[in-house]
Simulated scan of single mutants.
Amino acid sequence: MSVKFSTIAFDADDTLWENEQFFQVTQGRFADLLADFTEPDHLAERLLAAERRNLGRYGFGIKGFMLSMIETAIEVTDERVSASVIKELISAGQEMLQHPVHLLDGAAETVAQLAQDYIILLITKGDLLDQERKLAQSGLGEFFDGVEIVSNKTPQVYTEIFTRHSARPDQIMMVGNSMKSDVIAPIHAGAWGVFVPHNRTWDIEHAEPPLGHPKFQELENLHALPALIAQISNSR
């Protein structure tokens, strides 16, 4: 079917710039600090469980990750974890909050190209200050007609965003690396969902792809996005 797109929306973390790799590096440091108390795989399971429990309290982002690490450290050590280890975990989180932004291949060129013809939105979730910092450092801010930093990405949240920007859902394409948040949720809100996989994705963001859905697409990288838009727009 032919579609006249008005708006292209992008996820930020691990779609436009690196993010998850810094969490994994810190998690490796976490495992080293607690190596005397538990095996890395068991620690990873406990940490993931804590993160799931705490999403409703802390939301997504580095600060919630830090608190979940501290909580897990207390649990797996039967409250024997030292203050020096807690200090190390806080320091690791602070380093993550100061890490330079590394744009992914094709991000700058693709966003700049599409900004010439479409309304461009950034729709990302996580800590407000950290996301604002990364956007400012990315050099991409001038290309976005709107920036939405939300606590979660649900169909209702997408509907509210589309309404706020006076955009018809069927004329919107959402692009991201999370099948759950960037593809399935916007499709349920009436938009198109384009999955651009990243080699590192947080377990909580995994979901089965909506194979066969007419508004679902998957691309190898962002370089292929303009051609996909043109293909859908010109199809009959």
Rank of each mutant, 00 (worst) to 15 (best):
M1Q: 01
V3I: 12
K4Q: 11
T7F: 13
I8W: 14
I8L: 15
F10E: 03
D13P: 01
D14E: 05
E18C: 12
E18M: 11
E18T: 15
N19E: 12
Q24L: 14
L47A: 10
G56M: 07
G59H: 00
F60P: 01
F60C: 04
K63A: 00
L67R: 04
M69H: 01
E71V: 04
E71N: 08
T72L: 10
D78E: 06
E79F: 13
R80C: 15
A83L: 14
V85Q: 09
K87H: 12
L89R: 03
I90S: 14
G93I: 01
L97Q: 15
A108M: 07
T110R: 05
A112G: 02
Q113D: 09
Q113G: 05
D117T: 12
I120K: 07
L122C: 11
K134Q: 09
S138V: 11
F144Q: 08
G146M: 02
I149S: 07
P155Q: 03
Q156E: 15
H165L: 07
H165Q: 09
Q171G: 04
I172F: 02
M173K: 00
V183T: 08
I184S: 13
A189Y: 06
A191Q: 10
W192K: 02
P197H: 04
N199Q: 15
R200S: 09
R200I: 08
H206F: 12
N221Q: 02
H223W: 03
H223A: 15
A224F: 04
P226L: 10
A227L: 12
A227C: 03
A227S: 06
A230E: 11
Q231F: 11
R236V: 04
